[in-house]
């Protein structure tokens, strides 16, 4: 379904669901648009199951469109684009291993989660590390990966009131898991911290993770965490 996002952007939405296949389609669209942008396009932004195209209505209007609105024109161009979209090659996802220190001082919400789930903290850690996660999208903060889905035994709703969360914090919200690249207010339940720099201005690959990557967490002791932090 394609619908307007205000008067300078539109969104294509494949349903309100978290699904790897749908996310593949979204990322294929994103990469194809990057190679062959639509006329007047400023940028496209992929999410879980939707993608938005931001465009310059004034620039497009000047070209004369033969449509009632610029939106109708961009929508039509986008539909043509989708029709001629080349089939996407299945590439194996890049696997990134992410060390996490689950020590109490880095995991303010682990105790609470364990109590709520009537589990040992170790079990929670074991379950969190026992799965490969797909990075569905990067958003919220520069380099923040939205990953899923966690084992249903450790899903937990996001907090009502956001608190200050330090950079590197690894959290759970619903069935998603994510990492805060910067100190920020946040509502995810924090169960550990990674020493890795998620987003680095100096690095060529600015964001450690990209949408489409696979992530594995592994536990590290505080000593190792501090060594890696350097």
């Amino acid at each position: 379904m394609i619908f307007p996002l205000g008067d300078s952007a539109l969104t294509i939405d494949f349903g309100n669901i978290i699904n790897g296949k749908i996310n593949d389609t979204i990322l294929n669209l994103f990469h194809s648009l990057k190679e062959n942008p639509l006329p007047g396009m400023i940028e496209s932004v992929p999410a879980y199951s939707s993608l938005s195209i931001f465009y310059d209505p004034v620039k497009l209007k000047k070209q004369g469109l033969g449509k009632e609105t610029v939106y109708e024109f961009v929508k039509q161009e986008f539909e043509k684009f989708i029709e001629h979209l080349p089939l996407h090659e299945e590439k194996p996802a890049r696997i990134v291993r992410v060390p996490v220190c689950y020590d109490e001082e880095f995991a303010p919400d682990l105790e609470l989660l364990a109590a709520a789930k009537q589990m040992d903290k170790e079990e929670i850690i074991h379950l969190h590390c026992g799965k490969q996660y797909r990075v569905y999208m990067i958003g919220f903060l520069p380099g923040f990966p939205y990953m899923g889905t966690v084992d249903e035994r450790i899903t937990f709703p996001r907090k009502k009131d956001p608190v200050n969360v330090p950079a590197g914090s690894v959290g759970i919200a619903g069935s998603q898991t994510g990492i805060y690249p910067f100190n920020s207010p946040g509502g995810w339940n924090i169960i550990g911290r990674t020493p890795l720099k998620m987003f680095d201005l100096q690095r060529e690959e600015r964001s450690l993770l990209n949408a489409g990557d696979s992530v594995e967490f592994y536990p590290v002791h505080k000593n190792e965490f501090l060594t890696l932090l350097k």
Partner: peptide, 13 residues
């Protein structure tokens, strides 16, 4: 009561 999954937003949303 549907919970929305994250999707792009814009200036003015």
């Amino acid at each position: 009561n549907d919970e929305l999954i994250s999707s792009p937003v814009s200036f003015g949303t």
